[in-house]
Computed example of a mutant assay.
Amino acid sequence: MLMFFFALLFASFISFLCRRFSESSDKGWFRSLFVHKVDARKDAHSNLLSKKETSNLYKIQFHNVKPECLDEYNNLEAEVQRRLHQDQDFPCEVVGSWNIWYGEQDQAVHLWRYRGGYPALTDCLQKLRVNKEYLEFRKERAKMLISRQNQLLLEFSFWNEPLPRKGPNLYELRTYNLKPGTMLEWGNRWARAIKHRQENNEAVGGFFSQIGDLYVVHHLWAYESLQSREETRNSAWQKEGWDVNVYYTGKTSPATIML
């Protein structure tokens, strides 16, 4: 009987404490164990990280080509790109077009720029859908491809805008897969780190995905040769702060060398 009395008294005491904790918090102490408060962002990271003075939108294409068709594919693609450049009705331009030298073999990479953002992209696609020559090109190209993938990208505000440069050069594409929610931290770190990689004019462009695989960052670098690449990268390691930036860079896909 005495044990029952003490058990009842203890239960009443616990009930009293629970009520007091609940009254002292809007959410209640029990709920606070499971609810994690996150400060809301004032704006989308695409607005915070991209360039305000331009409205450029980029598209990157990855085409896996049948090995026996690579030369024919390159010739066909070059001809179509030339025609699109010459036609003022299409608000798009090819920033670069490459074949993989080291990395995934028999792959072509194309980087397009749409000056005017999404409206320019939509305008271009609508015109291409009714362009008979382009539709024939797509049919011919499809015979040469194994698979293809693309992403829509914005450029980081602290990177150079990709511009034509004297060659010949080899290009390195580095792709990083970020954890969701870390894009702003990434941008803040690289806004400081990019100064370490400007001495040899190797920084071509930096982009982050908007449509397609998300939380993806692409860095594009240019070098005169593989030896120049090694010397430039070794030089960066001698600069204070570069090692910290690399430590927090995150998971990267294999580096791709393109010509």
Rank of each mutant, 00 (worst) to 15 (best):
F137D: 01
Y114F: 09
F158Y: 14
G212V: 07
P164E: 11
T182E: 03
R233S: 13
G181M: 01
M183Q: 03
G187A: 06
H219N: 12
G212S: 08
N234M: 08
L145R: 03
Q126N: 11
R174Y: 03
A120G: 07
R148Y: 11
L152Y: 00
A203T: 15
G212L: 08
Q151H: 15
K132C: 10
L153Y: 15
N131A: 02
G206Q: 00
A120V: 03
L214Y: 00
R229G: 04
N169K: 01
Y114V: 13
E231S: 10
L135A: 02
V216W: 03
I146C: 02
K195V: 13
R229T: 12
R192G: 05
E202S: 02
G116H: 00
R148N: 15
E172H: 03
V216I: 14
K139T: 15
E231Q: 10
R115L: 03
W186V: 01
S228G: 15
L214D: 02
H218I: 04
K127H: 13
I211D: 10
Y134E: 15
Q210C: 09
R192F: 09
L163T: 13
G212E: 08
N200H: 11
N188E: 07
L163D: 07
N188G: 03
Q198W: 12
L220G: 14
Q149R: 14
A142K: 14
E140P: 10
E133P: 11
D213T: 09
L184I: 00
Y215I: 10
S157R: 02
N169F: 00
K132W: 08
G116N: 06
E230N: 14
K195E: 05
M144P: 00
T182Q: 02
L111C: 03
R129V: 09
H196A: 08
E199A: 09
R141L: 13
G167C: 01
Q149E: 15
W112I: 09
L226W: 08
Q210W: 08
Y118I: 14
N234G: 03
P180K: 04
Y134W: 13
E155G: 15
Q149S: 12
